[in-house]
Amino acid sequence: MSENYEYILKTEHVSKRFGTLEVLKDINLSVKKGEVICIIGPSGAGKSTFLRSLNQLEKITSGKIFIRDELFLHREHDHTVDKLPHEKQQELLLEMGMVFQRFNLFPHMTVLQNVCEAPVVVKKQKKSEAEAQARELLEKVGLSDKADEYPSRLSGGQQQRVAIARALAMNPEIMLFDEPTSALDPELVGDVLNVMKELAESGMTMLVVTHEMGFAKEVADRVLFMADGIIAEEGTPDQIFTNPQVDRTKSFLNAILET
């Protein structure tokens, strides 16, 4: 694959409406390889929708999405104007791994099967290879002893770490995290954040929608503050957390830090 690209991911004028409700308004974002971006903001700001429209779980109303500088999708007024051929799209989508708020593990499969499933079925990897890789990943997230358990026997934190391993098994270049710790009991949050931190340190490109300000401060290269469907403010963690410019950011941070 060509490494000669400027931005691994770029959006131009991305908008999304559900009926008359405008959830995303003209979002422009450029992500370089290896960047860790945290997206914060009040609920209903469109953070999750934005993340989900990047890997096509939501269809954008208009705007352009580029992956590795290639025009991945261009839509106007709910109609696709231009896009890559389907196979190429599928190939590029595999470069994005996704971790959900509610884990969404496959309950009828063991932990190991959960992690192996996509590599074997989608990438047609050999089963033995996929298993070896899966065990490595489970080791990495600290769950090698749970390989043969069903997800229902695991705690939320453990399930989320399996979900991370499952996403990583496809060797993505970008990891999308949609509020990965919001559904967890507070004492279980740390393990998951640690795994994400390690991932960030290994150079993974990450987009993280989160309410964990500590994590954002510590790990993010850039923090986006979203409100009412727009990126209200963006900057380094320092700029956003210590010296926010926009009133909405200020009041949001005040509210968060008070609790």
Partner: peptide, 17 residues
């Protein structure tokens, strides 16, 4: 759960798979 469809889609599985 709808999340099962989304997880499968995010992993690149086709509708049939």
């Amino acid at each position: 759960d709808k999340g099962q469809f989304e997880a499968a889609k995010a992993l690149g599985m086709t509708y049939g798979q």
